[in-house]
Amino acid sequence: MITVTSARKNYGSFAALDDVSLDIPSGSLTALLGPSGSGKSTLLRSIAGLEELDSGTVTIEGRDVTDEPPQRRGIGFVFQHYAAFKHMTVRDNVAFGLTIRKRPKAETRKKVDELLEIVGLDGFQHRYPAQLSGGQRQRMALARALAVDPQVLLLDEPFGALDAKVRTDLRQWLRRLHDEVHVTTVLVTHDQEEALDVADRIAVLNKGRIEQVGDPVTLYERPANDFVMGFLGSVAHLGGQLVRPHDIALERDRATALALDAKVVDSPGVIDAVVERVVPLGFEVRVELRAESGERFAAQITRRDAAELQLREGEKIHARATGRSSVIDVDPALAI
């Protein structure tokens, strides 16, 4: 368990962490999710000891490490840009933590080979980091961090520097690795899809504060506020409320729309709109609409529904929200 209590960190007048408290259960894979400047990296680096808190405490597995340097916190840290030791081979990179602890050579070698096999770099022992692809370098960095048997593994935007395909592969790989290794892992990301995909708990940060902590389903379906809702998926403005685009249904017949809408509690009502554009996205179709009020929004419907409606650009249509689970009132101060 990692416990952060009342953490504060200022850079000049900018509050990177503004009274943050967070519990991270042992064995979990927790994502710190937020836009840039939200304090997520600062929080992670404070747990690692790479950043000193102005006030507040950090405990790792019951031990107060607030005043400990990173060397004595029992952590493994993975950086966005790999931080590979370029003048060392892959083997020496991974062995570094063990070598400086003066472990017996045979033991180190065995452990390094095991780790390289786990991360899929077996046979790359004698290569230099420059001879690896970005994804391979990051896997090497992971093996290096795991070699010292850390109590917690801290990943700072670990896939941020990789291209999209490698990124998805690697995060699924990380998820499987975590299921095998079970080390408490904290991952910083600004990518909500990545957080939803890989983490079993997500803490959403904004402006140095934690907005909400929970499992992915809870956060997606019951966001605490419109920031969380807006950050964890796309949203549409519908009659002064925020609605997920796939929770919008379109009807040709206004009476039907009204009848169905009557069953929805707290609904924003039926909105008359004009179809501006129909964008096929594979399985789904995004329909871009303009309400009579002039407000633009998008609905995401299945291909089948789109085919039945036979939508054409410029046509009139009636939009309604289908459920209330993800419908929340817009805080006028935060209107996007």
Binding site: A48, L50, P69, P70, Q71, R72, I75, G76, F77, F79, H81, A83, A84, F85, F96, G97, I100, R101, A141, R144, A145, A147, V148
Partner: peptide, 22 residues
Amino acid sequence: DHEVEEAAASLGASTWTTFRRI
């Protein structure tokens, strides 16, 4: 790259070890 030194520190290397080896 300053991160390389931070990486060494996170792996337990003292400032002197980091200087000498990294």
